[in-house]
């Protein structure tokens, strides 16, 4: 009889996110990681494995600026070279003319 009554005892359902909360609470925070090699590796892995929007934007911006500036300077160099070749050609032509007269 006593056992039957004891079996009626009710236990409420645990919150469905309790396991998740415990697992999250166990994850080390950045400030707790310290400057160990493993800690640094973990931070890098997290950044690259799961791209973070702000970080990805900064990388794309820097990459874009680098590509943009290097393209412009190459173009300038090519223009300069063409101009130099042309003017030296003209100069040479003129000096040849003068030579013939002399």
């Amino acid at each position: 009889m006593l056992d039957d009554v004891l079996r009626e005892r009710f236990v409420p359902e645990m919150p469905s996110n309790l396991a998740y909360r415990i697992i999250e609470a166990a994850k080390p925070r950045d400030s707790e990681r310290g400057l160990t090699l493993a800690g640094i590796g973990r931070v890098f892995a997290e950044i690259f494995v799961i791209p973070q929007p702000a970080f990805a934007m900064v990388v794309i911006l820097v990459l874009g600026m680098y590509v943009g500036t290097s393209y412009v300077s190459e173009q300038n160099m090519e223009t300069k070279m063409v101009h130099e070749n042309f003017s030296s050609f003209i100069t040479a032509d003129v000096s040849v003319d003068y030579g013939e007269f002399l």
Binding site: R9, V11, P12, M14, L18, A19, I22, I23, A26
Partner: peptide, 18 residues
């Protein structure tokens, strides 16, 4: 650790509640 928690959390929650 995550597997261990997921496997046992319900049982130990009930034990703690009792």
């Amino acid at each position: 650790f995550a597997v261990l928690v997921t496997r046992h959390v319900k049982k130990f929650h009930a034990a703690a509640y009792r």
